[in-house]
Computed example of a mutant assay.
Amino acid sequence: MSDCIEVVAIVEGKTEQTFIESLLKPYLARKMIFMRATQVTKPGQKGGDVRFERVKRDLGLHLKQRRDTYVTTLVDYYGTKEWPGLELVPSGATPSEIARVVNEATKKEVVASFPEQRADRRFIPYMAIHEFEALLFSSSAILATRLGKKESHVKAVLTACGEPEAINNHPETAPSKRLDAWSKNGKFSKTTTGMAIAREIGIDRMREKCPLFNGWIESFEAMIGEQA
């Protein structure tokens, strides 16, 4: 039995890697969960539409390296075109329904591909519904202040959609597009402004407002004391 665990997170791009390394990693370390992020996107390639075959290749490499580590993913559903379970998602599905269908299909595929690496216990799939920017809607006050907007603008989005993880899955109304429109130069900086806002909001508030993100972290917390 172990009172700590190590997790390798295979992420979509530089923004997700920065978020984990600068914010989530120190937060989890206090809970004896030691996470590091590795980027699957090839150098020079923008995020979005990450292909599962490339991710599966990296999953296999990390599952085979050490048998006492856990492996997870951080890829967003928005814009993904090739991934297990996409064809099974019903029209009009809620964020939780999308995540359940896709994560179950992903787990099934990885377990079948790497049975000797105990992927059934060591692999935790996480398909975020939207890109990193959705988490920034966890505090309408902080987001509005940082962007110099009225808080009512942010609240209106949350009222219409229900929660940050349910913000529209559409090219014009996705979280990143909304933040671009609210930015003075028409382009929101994820790695500078975005990380500063995320740091001010804090992981705890994100967990409170984003149930899928919270469930992902809870899956690691539940493993403390278990044997990988």
Rank of each mutant, 00 (worst) to 15 (best):
I10F: 09
V8I: 11
H62W: 14
E104I: 09
G225T: 07
E163C: 14
F123A: 08
H170Q: 06
E151P: 01
K187E: 07
A112H: 09
A174V: 10
L86I: 03
K155P: 08
L59M: 07
F19C: 11
V111Y: 14
H62F: 10
V50F: 02
K155N: 14
Y27E: 00
V11N: 05
L59V: 03
G79V: 12
E53Q: 13
R30C: 06
A222P: 00
E53V: 04
F213V: 04
G85P: 00
L147G: 01
Y77M: 13
E172K: 15
D120T: 04
K25Q: 05
A228K: 07
A134I: 09
E131L: 14
T15H: 03
L147T: 08
A228P: 03
A166K: 11
V75F: 07
Y78N: 14
R100G: 06
I167A: 09
K108N: 08
R54M: 08
A134C: 03
T193Q: 04
T80C: 15
G48I: 00
V101H: 00
T159S: 12
T80R: 14
V55K: 00
K42D: 03
W83V: 06
R36W: 15
K25C: 15
T72K: 02
E53S: 11
D76R: 04
A99P: 06
M206V: 05
A141I: 13
F114K: 11
K155D: 06
I224S: 11
E87C: 08
C210R: 03
L135P: 13
T38A: 13
K81E: 15
V154C: 02
S189N: 13
I124E: 00
I203P: 01
G48M: 06
A134K: 10
P211W: 06
E208C: 12
N103W: 06
S189M: 07
T80M: 13
G92N: 06
S2F: 07
G148L: 04
E116V: 13
I224F: 01
L88Q: 15
T159K: 07
M223E: 08
L24S: 10
I20V: 09
K184F: 01
E82F: 09
E53P: 05
N168E: 15
E82S: 08
D204M: 15
